[in-house]
C-alpha cells in the first residue's frame, strides 16, 4: 500500500477565544481483521490506524482511539479553541508502528 496521505482543514487565522472546527482525513484501508482472502480463504490480519492525536504547540488537544469498525480512509472532525498563534500537529499511528503526521499553522489576531 502506498504511504497513507493525510489531509487537514484548519483555519489559517482566528480571533482569540474562537472555537475552530478542524477536519481531517487520511488514506488507509483500515483492514478490519475480519476479512478473508478470496483465493486462500485465510483471514487477512488486522492493520488499522489505532490512534489519532491532535496537539497544539506540543500539548494534546484532542485524541481518538480507533477500532476496526472505523471506516476506510478515516475521517475525524472536532473543535479547538484559538488561544495563541502556533502549530497544530496531527499524528496517526498504524498497527505496524508507523506514524503519519501533518502540521498546520494558526495565527491568532
Amino acid at each position: 500500500m502506498a504511504k497513507p496521505k493525510p489531509r487537514v482543514k484548519v483555519p489559517k487565522t482566528a480571533a482569540k477565544g474562537e472555537v475552530l472546527e478542524i477536519k481531517t482525513l487520511i488514506t488507509h484501508k483500515m483492514e478490519s481483521g475480519q476479512r478473508k482472502d478470496k483465493k486462500t480463504g485465510e483471514k487477512i490480519p488486522q492493520k488499522i490506524i489505532n490512534k489519532f492525536v491532535c496537539a497544539f504547540n506540543g500539548k494534546e488537544v484532542f485524541s481518538a482511539d480507533w477500532h476496526p469498525a472505523i471506516s476506510a480512509n478515516p475521517f475525524m472532525s472536532f473543535y479547538a479553541v484559538a488561544t495563541e498563534s502556533g502549530t497544530f500537529e496531527f499524528t496517526w499511528t498504524d498497527d505496524d508502528g508507523s506514524v503519519y503526521s501533518k502540521t498546520a499553522q494558526l495565527t491568532v489576531e
Binding site: 496521505k5 489531509r7 482543514k9 477536519k23 482525513l25 487520511i26 488514506t27 480512509n73 475521517f75 472532525s77
Partner: peptide, 14 residues
C-alpha cells in the same frame, strides 16, 4: 458536498 469531508479529494491531492 464538502471537499474536506470527501475522501476522494485525497486522490485528487495525490
Amino acid at each position: 458536498d464538502d471537499d474536506f469531508e470527501n475522501p476522494a479529494m485525497l486522490w485528487v491531492d495525490t
